[in-house]
Computed example of a mutant assay.
Amino acid sequence: MSGPDVTVRSVGIEGQPLVVIDGFSADPAALRAAAIAERFGPAGQHYPGLRASLPADYFQERGSVLADVMARAFGYRGRVDVLDASFSVVTTLPSALSVRQRLPHCDAFAADRLAIVHYLSPEGGDGTAFFRHRSTGYETVDAARAPGYFERLDAELQDAGEPPPSYIADDTPLFERTMLAEARFDRALIYRSFLLHSGAIAPGAALSPDPATGRLTVTAFLVAA
């Protein structure tokens, strides 16, 4: 039985690594069944949907491939800790999105923080898009850039008005899409959390709360110790 297929892409002008792993799970059907059996609840924070608990051995099963990726793509050879991880399903209708949910975002502002998105919908569906803020040229927002970036973005929103009630999946007047990573069943993406990104949810996408039919993923956040 062959192992996962791992490729490393370079995102945009800043050239941040994006790891794409096809065949991330030894048994994706069983993982999907575990999600369907779970009780989902409101995600909280800024995630536009629902979350549920992962199986206890989720990261243990993937330990060797993650260790290789952390060293090869990101240069981390020490301990990497899991900060948060869950099954996730996008459910928020475009009309109910907050202004911030209509824009690219960062999950954290430190270079040692990493995000994982593991797609578990058999039909693939919407992937993840990465962006450059046009006026600053930023593709990443760290702690040093954040104050100026948000000041500039707030001023632009004041001048241009709020973005339309939709998920951002392509170019807009304020942001240029630098890459689209397509969703595939049992594909995982790993990238630094300070990359500007968004779920590339297409207009008219069915946003079912049922993990058997909705946009089911695992979302996880790690930190390199």
Rank of each mutant, 00 (worst) to 15 (best):
A188L: 13
G75V: 11
F221I: 05
G44V: 04
Q60C: 08
Q158Y: 05
D68T: 11
L54K: 06
F175Q: 04
L153T: 01
A224F: 09
Q16N: 11
A96K: 09
L222Y: 15
I168N: 11
G204C: 11
P48N: 05
R152P: 02
P17N: 06
P94G: 12
S95L: 09
S25W: 06
F130K: 00
L157G: 08
A37C: 06
R192H: 13
A206S: 10
S166I: 13
L31H: 02
D186N: 15
P42L: 06
R132V: 07
Y138Q: 05
H133M: 00
E38L: 02
A43C: 10
V99K: 09
Y191R: 00
A224D: 09
A29W: 13
E151W: 00
R184T: 10
L54Y: 05
R62Y: 08
G15H: 03
F40G: 07
S208L: 02
V223D: 11
I168A: 13
G125N: 00
G204Q: 12
P147Y: 10
F130D: 03
S25V: 04
D5Y: 02
F74C: 03
T128I: 12
H118W: 01
P28G: 11
G148E: 14
G75P: 08
R62I: 07
S166W: 07
S86P: 01
